[in-house]
Amino acid sequence: MISIESHVICQSIQPTFQSGLAAFFAVFYVFNLQYQDEASQTLEFIQRWFIGINPERGSKASHGNVMS
């Protein structure tokens, strides 16, 4: 299940772990979200090395003070 701000947007439609992980990362890009500070380095590593999403520039990890 994927939920954003307590609203379920995707439930029980991902049959495999790989497609669920792809949907997870897709949500960050579709809704232009940033990774949580506590998990940002781990998610960046998974995104770049295991999923193969390597943007030319930029990052979904916050750097410094970010207004949301």
Rank of each mutant, 00 (worst) to 15 (best):
T16L: 06
S6V: 04
N32D: 15
P55N: 07
F24Y: 10
G64W: 09
F17R: 08
S6G: 10
V8E: 06
H63G: 06
I46T: 03
I46A: 07
Q36E: 09
S40F: 00
E38D: 11
L33G: 01
M1L: 13
I51D: 01
I53H: 04
G58N: 01
F17Y: 07
Q34S: 13
C10T: 14
K60Y: 09
Q18Y: 06
Q14R: 10
E38Y: 03
Q47D: 10
A39E: 09
H63A: 10
N54M: 09
C10F: 14
A26H: 06
P15W: 13
I13C: 13
R48H: 06
V8K: 04
I9F: 03
S62Y: 03
L43R: 03
S59A: 10
Q14V: 02
F17K: 09
Q34T: 08
T16R: 11
Q36C: 07
N54G: 00
M1A: 14
G64D: 07
S12M: 12
V66Y: 12
Q18S: 09
E5C: 13
F24V: 02
G58C: 02
V27G: 00
I51F: 08
A23S: 13
F45L: 11
F50W: 05
S68D: 09
S12K: 15
Q36T: 04
Q11N: 14
Q11K: 15
Q34A: 11
Q11D: 15
T42V: 09
S40I: 00
I4A: 08
P55F: 08
Y29S: 02
E38S: 11
I9Y: 04
S62C: 12
I46L: 12
E44P: 00
M1N: 12
F25C: 11
T16G: 04
E56A: 14
F45R: 10
Q14A: 11
E38M: 04
A23H: 01
F28K: 01
Y35S: 02
H7N: 14
N54Q: 10
F31D: 01
N54C: 12
Q34W: 06
